[in-house]
């Protein structure tokens, strides 16, 4: 059992929900990313998503676009992110997923990427512009290495696609909570509950919800139906607004504990 499966297994047994924050690796610097991961873990994160910057992030809203630009400006590469994961692994065993667009992976080489990612200590990969139809090469490579390839579903997904994606995904299925790109929203999409229930009928794999969830209150509500909540832009924005790396790390830990408490309230209520 890999770290992702182990985490969801443990959470399920405890009746708890996963808190999965997202960070852009290398924003504002690569050594900061290591301390941010540690801060989030201390605050109560269960899994962490590390973004790999891309010049054309077309599934992302303005907050993550800016983080991507800052990180590229710092010279971040996929190879550099893997080195960062190795450093994190010296201090932490928290499950780590890379979120990357497809082109950097294609350029790196799919087989080599899967091998190097696993060796560095990555547990799973999310590639938002790679649907199962085009994922053949990456899937073969990831399976061979034992790296989870997480696929996404959206409110627009048809029943047919839900079945197909749930068969393909590993570790969990990433449900995009709204019809749109990443970013903070005032309220949850009204179709969220219905959307997650559609997935439940098709699969027993854990369901994590992301896109548009930025406050502990929203996370708590989403977690009534989902097994985990992914928070990206709010986390990245907090870093953007901090005064320096130490201030950001301190605020990230407090941020994570607020989400942790909210998600644990949800456990008490659903029991």
């Amino acid at each position: 059992m890999n770290r992702i499966d182990a985490a969801f297994h443990r959470l399920r047994k405890e009746g708890r929900k996963a808190f999965i924050p997202y960070l852009m690796a290398g924003d504002p610097r690569m050594d900061a990313t290591v301390s941010f991961v540690r801060a989030l873990e201390r605050g109560g994160a269960d899994l962490i998503e590390l973004g790999v910057p891309f010049s054309d992030p077309l599934a992302d809203g303005p907050v993550i676009q800016r983080a991507s630009e800052r990180s590229l400006w710092e010279g971040t590469t996929l190879r550099g992110v893997l080195a960062c994961v190795r450093r994190i692994r010296q201090q932490s065993q928290i499950p780590l997923l890379l979120m990357t667009y497809y082109n950097p992976v294609a350029k790196y080489g799919e087989a080599r990427f899967a091998r190097d990612a696993l060796a560095a200590g990555v547990d799973g990969v999310i590639i938002p512009d790679l649907p199962p139809e085009e994922a053949g090469g990456v899937r073969v490579a990831a399976r061979r290495e034992g790296l989870d390839l997480v696929f996404l579903l959206a409110p627009t997904s048809t029943e047919d696609r839900i079945r197909r994606v749930c068969r393909a995904t590993q570790g969990f299925v990433y449900y995009v909570s709204l019809t749109g790109v990443t970013g903070m929203r005032r309220s949850l999409d009204p179709t969220l509950m219905e959307g997650i229930q559609r997935l439940r009928k098709a699969t027993r794999i854990p369901i994590a919800v992301g896109f548009g969830i930025s406050s502990p209150g929203q996370a708590e509500r989403a977690a009534r139906w989902a097994d985990g909540v992914i928070v990206g832009s709010a986390c990245v924005r907090l870093i953007e607004q901090s005064r320096g790396v130490r201030d950001a790390a301190r605020r990230l830990q407090a941020f994570a504990s607020r989400f942790r408490r909210a998600l644990d309230r949800c456990r008490k209520r659903t029991r």
């Binding site: 077309l58 512009d129 959206a154 627009t156 997904s157 696609r161």
Partner: peptide, 9 residues
Amino acid sequence: KFVPETLMP
């Protein structure tokens, strides 16, 4: 077709 799931349908 290398696009996010939202656009696939």
